[in-house]
Amino acid sequence: MKQLSLTFILFVGFLLSAQNKTIGYGEKLVFTASYNMSGLLTDIAQVTMETSKVSTSKSTLMRLKCRATTFNSFDGFFKVRDLYESYVSPTSLTPYLYKRDINEGGYYKFMQYKYRRKSRSVESIKKKRRGDGSIWEEKKILNVSSSTKDLVATLYTLRNLDIHKANIGDASSFKVLFDNEESTVVFKYLGKEIISSNIGRKECYKIAISLRGSDLLKGNNSNIIWLTADANKVPVYAKFKIPVGNGELKIKSATGLKN
């Protein structure tokens, strides 16, 4: 049992210290988000994940950007225009700034996290639109652990893990800051599967995602992501459970890959 625990700690430690070998500048992944109810698929939105180079006077960072846009048939029904950004170190994918700007069916919310790595704290700004149209703002200083990341950086970190070294059933956990609360996201390796997608028939790593202590992503393998079993580890397909039916994310195109 001790040996097993030690192996697991070493495995997690190795994964956390991993350098970025997977994600390069100028990568663009386009996905179609669909709603699946008893096998009837309805395309709802387009999701894009892009990377680019951002230079400040002192350093160069990588901008990880995720955008969600509903298709025009849905715009009159429930318009979504979401922008998620994370400014990370290009070598270690450590985030320094996170921004979330969501506009969903008239609901507006803005979140910003400025990571103060040395003091292990995060300066958080939260903005919401009131019923009368005015903006309400809240500023907070949050104490976080040294390895805490945001949602976007965690998704890219998952791609950077050495999954080829993992055995079926191995799990890796990450501290994620979302809505000013620190939670633990667990990625569990379930094995390999062949997936047919718009970018071809690919052998993929099947990974279950769960959020410890939350009902949002329950840990019963119902939220699964498939990453190509190559050096780019492109997410080609994702399946997630929502209160009524299932959601799906399918890749449409992948350009500017590093490897």
Partner: peptide, 15 residues
């Protein structure tokens, strides 16, 4: 948002 982010990043200590 990118322009604002660059301004915000200027006063951060990046290792």
């Amino acid at each position: 948002s990118e322009e604002d982010a660059i301004k915000e990043l200027e006063d951060l200590e990046i290792d």
